[in-house]
Simulated scan of single mutants.
Amino acid sequence: MEHPEPDARNLERSLGEYVRAVAAAVGVPDESTTVEISDTATAYLGLPQRWIDRPDHDVMLVWNERRGWSLAVETDPAEDPVVIAHHDGGDLVPDPRAVAQFVTDTAAGRHTGRKRPGPVAATTRGALAERLSPYVHHPR
């Protein structure tokens, strides 16, 4: 089935609603999230946890349209974050409860998805917008 490409504004809104649902499941306020649509659609959630190996750095949950969710530790602004684990499962838009469980399991040392995954099945932005559409509840 062919999916028409959404405009960036609609995709940003849909992704934003999904990220808010993930934030609620993880237990962080909306203010701790950002979404950006550019050459790659991305999302960020700042988490209140600290990582035992890097107690002076913030932990973040990040998403991009090519690889899905990853848990990472922020470093200096000029450096890339240190990835702790990648959510495996092959779904770019897993249920928010599954993402929350991924965070809980990783923090407890029970997550084994540490290797860098390949891209999740290639998808168009139209297909991504369709997967995100259940999270859009009302027009703004």
Rank of each mutant, 00 (worst) to 15 (best):
E130W: 06
S14P: 09
T33Q: 11
A107T: 09
V19M: 14
T112N: 06
D30W: 12
V83C: 15
A24I: 00
R9L: 06
R114I: 01
T123R: 05
S133L: 04
V22N: 06
G46D: 10
S133K: 07
W63I: 14
R50L: 04
V19K: 08
V83D: 15
H57A: 15
W51M: 00
A85P: 11
T33W: 07
H57I: 04
T106C: 02
T104W: 04
L15A: 12
A23N: 04
P134Y: 02
H138Q: 07
L47S: 03
A100W: 09
L61N: 06
P55D: 07
S14G: 14
P96M: 03
V120E: 01
T124H: 00
P94Q: 09
D53V: 05
S70T: 14
A72W: 10
T40L: 10
T42D: 03
R9A: 11
V59D: 12
H86K: 14
W63F: 13
E2M: 01
V136H: 10
D105K: 07
R97E: 14
A85N: 09
I37P: 04
T42A: 11
P94S: 12
R66C: 05
L71Q: 13
R50H: 08
Q101V: 06
P94T: 13
M1S: 10
T40V: 09
A122S: 03
G27R: 06
S38E: 06
M1W: 01
D30T: 10
M60F: 09
Q49T: 11
L128T: 05
A8T: 07
R20Y: 14
G89P: 11
I84G: 14
G90C: 05
A25E: 02
R114S: 10
R9Y: 04
A24L: 08
D105A: 07
H87I: 02
D76T: 15
A72E: 14
E2I: 10
N64P: 07
V62W: 13
V83L: 09
P77M: 15
A108L: 08
V136D: 08
D56L: 07
G113V: 01
G68K: 14
V28W: 12
Y44Q: 11
P6K: 02
R110A: 08
A107R: 07
D58Y: 14
E65Y: 09
R97G: 14
R20C: 13
T104G: 10
V83T: 15
G118R: 00
A107L: 11
A107P: 02
L92Y: 01
V93S: 08
T42S: 11
P139N: 08
L132M: 04
T34W: 06
H137E: 13
R54T: 13
W51R: 05
P6H: 00
T104N: 03
L11R: 00
T75I: 07
L15D: 13
H138E: 10
H87E: 10
V93A: 08
G16D: 12
P139T: 04
G16P: 09
L11Q: 01
